[in-house]
């Protein structure tokens, strides 16, 4: 219930209507969107029960490892109602053609594989919010100071997922496990995304805001 309340509202990409469509424009729009979503996601993390009790250093380490997984999982959940399209924002939906134009066809297809998986499972909002918190708590940073505290956070969130499934999905006793088993693909996809945006950063043709850059650098 706390995670459902903490879930942020959707945000808008607001692409500049005066700039002609191009790969640079699409990537600039996405990087600006990601930067604003990251601010929102840091605010969200503070509402995960147990997260604010971690040391500031451990909160930072988890976010530095897991931020892209959180961004992608949010795009994936928003895209569940559509076919072969990614809802980066309510006013920014990418189809295959736009993905090609932005040079994001491979990355977006990888994200669509996640969408397909969760669609087939009928992922519910309750499951999505817990899974997203688990992705953060389980982001495998090598810099964690208090591993026991992070383990306790993982246990609480894992327990919440199991309790939810035990009361709502009695017919499938393995559903919690099935959901957890989707996380490797999320990790893999996020790593691809980070790699892609790191090379865009190196190119230097797309303006990026400071928080996005800071977190990309934490991954480099």
């Amino acid at each position: 219930s706390l995670l459902l309340v903490a879930e942020p509202e959707g945000i808008f990409a607001m692409p500049d209507p005066t700039v002609p469509e191009s790969d640079i424009k699409a990537l600039t729009t996405l990087c600006d969107l990601a930067d604003r979503e990251l601010v929102v996601n840091i605010g969200w993390a503070k509402h995960i029960p147990g997260f604010p009790s971690l040391s500031l250093a451990d909160q930072m380490s988890l976010l530095q490892s897991g931020w892209m997984e959180i961004l992608i999982l949010r795009v994936v959940f928003r895209s569940l109602a559509l076919e072969d399209k990614l809802v980066y924002a309510e006013d920014y939906i990418m189809d295959e053609e736009q993905s090609k134009l932005a040079g994001l066809l491979d990355l977006n297809n990888a994200i669509l594989q996640l969408v397909k998986k969760y669609k087939a499972m009928g992922l519910e909002k309750e499951e999505f919010v817990v899974l997203k918190a688990i992705a953060l708590a389980n982001s495998d940073s090598i810099q964690i100071e208090d591993l026991e505290a992070v383990q306790r956070l993982q246990d609480v969130l894992h327990g919440a997922l199991q309790d939810y499934e035990a009361t709502h999905r009695l017919e499938d006793p393995r559903r919690a496990g099935k959901l957890i088993m989707t996380l490797p693909l999320l990790r893999q996809t996020a790593a691809r995304a980070v790699q892609h945006f790191c090379s865009i950063k190196q190119d230097g043709r797309v303006p990026m805001h400071k928080l996005f850059l800071e977190l990309l650098e934490a991954k480099a």
């Binding site: 930072m60 976010l63 800071e214 977190l215 650098e217």
Partner: peptide, 15 residues
Amino acid sequence: KEKHKILHQLLQNST
């Protein structure tokens, strides 16, 4: 940690 100023600030803000 110096390198991650913005994340640090955002986490410290009470909002």
